[in-house]
Design a protein around this nucleic acid. Structure first.
Lengths: 271, 271
DNA sequence: CCGTTTGGTTCCACATAATGAAACCCAATC
DNA sequence: GATTGGGTTTCATTATGTGGAACCAAACGG
């Protein structure tokens, strides 16, 4: 029998897929990756695990309600417990609950779609949005993630990060060219970040999705640490970059407002 | 201690906290339970695990971004990866995406708050809502869970479940008296369910929260299996049960509509 | 100041829980 | 009635997780 020295790390881009729960999460990700119910065998094909192992994982995850099994179609899909957990997560680890009134107000004021985003592990995650025209309903719902280097909010956040945090984050960028306007190297991005840092706002010039542009500004917390960003997004069929620039004061005002609220807020002192 | 003598399947919630990932999830739940950032030691107190073990779990979970650690305050809180996963879960395992237009339309028509809920493991989980008056914004956001036995949607779903699925679900009810109007035994509940099954709609008569009432109806899927429920909720200060009854036709129409859409929908055939 | 406490992290011998090859089951197919 | 293929179970092997205890650092307090 062949002894394979499986010292982790080999294939997966994850630096160190740690322990059993790490593997379990990988399986969960695999299911999520399909974006639709999947059969056991489909998963098996794309899985590094042998049948029995994968089977046990699915059993466990299902038992934990992180997955759900549909007997009639014999497929697995993500379980509702995730939605449930996320509800709590959203409430306790995003600034969405705090910022909601300002997001609302800003959306009302400018009459365009407003996004609230945070950064996590090098990627941007949208935690709230308002007044989306039904047209791009699909983009950026709460929970949606996007790369940092090619979105307005992402660049706004990167530009205001501390040196080392930014470096770490930049390492994690793939610099995939989503559109002809996308930055493809950290060099070109860095010069823009510099400019953003001076300017106070970032623009997305159809870098992530053709036809979509936005203006974004960072939300700073205690001692000027970026904790998120707000953006006003629109489509090129309706507005130009110049139109967006007109929203700059309103945007900055909202960011400042959120900052203030976030500043004051303390979680109830522990008993 | 609830003694459930049940043969075969399921077993109660998670008495049988299986394997390492089960324990990890318990820890996650513990953090979620606090509903606010927690210190290591706080968790330790409420944890069955010794220091070292708990520590390792927190490390792992944090590394997996299911938890996040805030160095300045030295606390753990749920990680954004949950929000991210939930986004996918919501899209692929809830009927919210399909039903959204009908929820919207119904809310417009009746001018009251509309909830869309599903059942999972004996509890009701809200997956969408529209037109909440800011007054009870807190109640029933997507991801929120509530007991089945004392909510409109819960009872509507229970009433239309298959015998054995219902029995299983009833086992999982705690029959806690949230208000003076709450059912406190499965007997009294069963007679009402019977009545609901005949009537087609269920009422929440301030059983979960004083001042909140609702009318709810089940959404049926293939071969009359309940797959969720819609409800129209309001507060006693604004409407009476009779007012709600007036919405019955609209509600049933919406449910039928959702059913039809859900019926037709198939996930893309596997390649 | 230095001894002590509190809160958190690391070590390491040990036991448990995960692993995966192979056998098995069963329904659909040839 | 044999064969295939998705799915489930078994079981010896060993990687993994476990937790008591030692350790460290910062805050406390006398």
């Amino acid at each position: 029998m062949i002894k394979v020295t499986r010292r982790g790390s080999g294939m997966n881009s994850h630096v160190k897929s740690d322990g059993t729960v790490g593997k379990a999460m990988d399986v969960l990700d695999a299911v999520a990756g399909f974006g639709r119910p999947v059969r056991f065998s489909e998963l098996l094909e794309h899985s590094p695990h042998p049948k029995a192992t994968l089977y046990r994982f699915l059993q466990t995850l299902t038992h934990q309600r992180l997955l759900a099994y549909a007997p009639e179609t014999q497929t697995y899909h993500l379980g509702l417990r995730l939605v449930q957990l996320a509800h709590t997560a959203w409430g306790q680890s995003s600034l969405a609950p705090l910022a909601a009134p300002m997001v609302e107000a800003l959306a009302d004021e400018v009459g365009e779609t407003v996004h609230l985003a945070q950064i996590d592990n090098g990627q941007v995650i949208f935690v709230d949005k308002r007044r989306a025209s039904p047209m791009f309903e699909t983009l950026a719902q709460p929970g949606r993630v996007a790369p940092a280097f090619c979105t307005g909010v992402g660049k706004a956040i990167l530009a205001f990060m501390s040196e080392e945090r930014r470096d770490r984050a930049l390492q994690q960028q793939a610099f995939l060219a989503y559109t002809p306007h996308t930055h493809t190297s950290s060099d070109s991005l860095l010069t823009e970040l510099d400019q953003i840092a001076r300017d106070g706002v970032a623009f997305d010039r159809e870098e992530h999705q053709l036809g979509i542009i936005s203006i974004a500004a960072p939300i700073l917390g205690k001692s000027d640490r970026v904790i998120g960003a707000l953006s006003i997004a629109t489509s090129t069929t309706q507005n130009t970059l110049e139109d967006l620039t007109a929203f700059r004061p309103a945007l900055l005002r909202s960011c400042a407002h959120v900052r203030q609220v976030a500043q004051d807020w303390q979680f109830p002192a522990h008993p």
